[in-house]
Amino acid sequence: MTHLTRRTLIDVSILATLQTDKHLRLFDCRSSLQDPAAGLLAYTAGHIDGAQYVDLNRDLSAKIVPGQTGRHPLPDRETFAAQVRRWGITQDSLVVAYDADNGAYAARLWWMLRWLGHPNVVVLDGGYQAWLDAGQVSSTRLINLPESAFFVRPAITRQVAADELQPPQGLLLDARDRPRFEGKTEPIDPVAGHIPGAVCAPFGENLDGATGRFRSAADLRQRFNGLGATAAGDTICYCGSGVTAAHNILAMVHAGFPEPALYPGSWSEWIIDPTRPVTTL
């Protein structure tokens, strides 16, 4: 069994040495919010050998119920656990997730496995690009593992619902870009703005712009301290649909903060009820 304490990120160099580890389960989470077919096409063209394809809409979200849910509602825990079994994950597995978009989709899988009580999951720092840049090869081999025994354990994650956010108890961080936060533009959702009391914390700022890798734990600590996070553990993260908020959660855990809570419905669910307040700047 491979043991990790800082269960957040893994380097390409380490992943390369783990490739023959029988406990490794690797997942390609590449996806595009604009083009639902792009992830599978990219995976088919080439992926890290041993990786299974994960589809954000099919595998990491329940069906959207118009007028009730956000854009990526969480499936129920047992439904997701059944998928985890089909992926061949056992409680001994070390799960590594990667994508090509700065780790946001991989972070969603990271969060969801921790939600099922599986702590041994990490995101590949720098994603697929870092893998190729390091001179590692891609593969088109498809793998199919036998269904595993996996049982849900107490969640490591925390979550809150919309009615706990009026007003928010603690620091509320919005992972979307500043123009969307301010309500200047809204390319995806029908209403622009943010939840009253929220602080703008674009997830892209968790990364070093030059390398596409996560900033150091010390840098991230400074970033979130600057946004008002404390060791009290009362931070809540949201975004457009509960995907990129997981990126901020991962970054905060990596920086040594207590696990922040996720508001899984996020902005796209918040605005369904027209009585909920909205702030624009």
Binding site: H3, L4, T5, R6, I10, D11, I14, T17, L18, D21
Partner: peptide, 11 residues
């Protein structure tokens, strides 16, 4: 030893 401790060294 290199393989056995690659994850340990990371952490």
């Amino acid at each position: 030893a290199k393989d056995a401790f690659s994850a340990t060294l990371q952490h």
